[in-house]
Design a protein around this nucleic acid. Sequence first.
DNA 1: CGGGATCCTAGACGATACTG
DNA 2: CAGTATCGTCTAGGATCCCG
Lengths: 108, 108
Amino acid sequence: MTIKNLPPCPVEVTLSLIGNRWKCLILRDLLSGTKRFGELKKSVEGITQKVLTSNLREMEANNLLVRRVYAEVPPRVEYTLTKTGMSLRPILEAMFVWGSEYKEKNQA
Amino acid sequence: MTIKNLPPCPVEVTLSLIGNRWKCLILRDLLSGTKRFGELKKSVEGITQKVLTSNLREMEANNLLVRRVYAEVPPRVEYTLTKTGMSLRPILEAMFVWGSEYKEKNQA
DNA sequence: CGGGATCCTAGACGATACTG
DNA sequence: CAGTATCGTCTAGGATCCCG
């Protein structure tokens, strides 16, 4: 998926950028602020480093987040949402709200 | 994914039910009202009947839609969102809004 | 028309080892 | 610590055929 040549339907545009489980969860965890690679690996339950890396790279390429490398030993790499990435918050919030209500109804 | 035993995080709950491209698109097309199988197959661009069927079955099992079969020849099968399915509208709307803005910025 | 049954493939994902 | 590299697995999805 190039950053150009987007689908005609806006919903599909969104799906092409965050239309997978992992990206949504990464997004969820970065909305509260900058995080290191290792922190994300812990908070995004069940993800492997390979998959985490590839998803982060794609999101970086799509301008949803920035990757900042610090020349230290041991190395430190931090990920921060861009303004564009931050603007996805309403979607995640809607998902949070709906999920909460669904849980309440179907599990309580 | 059983309807019980939901993930702790509400966002993950939502993802477990509509966390794939096809379900979101099916949802998008059913929000405007009841549709027949063949109509969905056309409007959900690129989906095969097998994948459409399996996704519809899962969404039915999760109580997001109802399947109504009419004893006619040729057969007619209609799909309608339940109240729960309808309640996902805000998520899809948020995706629509974000996708529109992203397109405008990155393609215009 | 709306599937079910079958077979097959690509790509997503996991596991492990290695490194600057 | 945060990766890259390699290999293996597995399943979502595609293609095709058939049927009530």
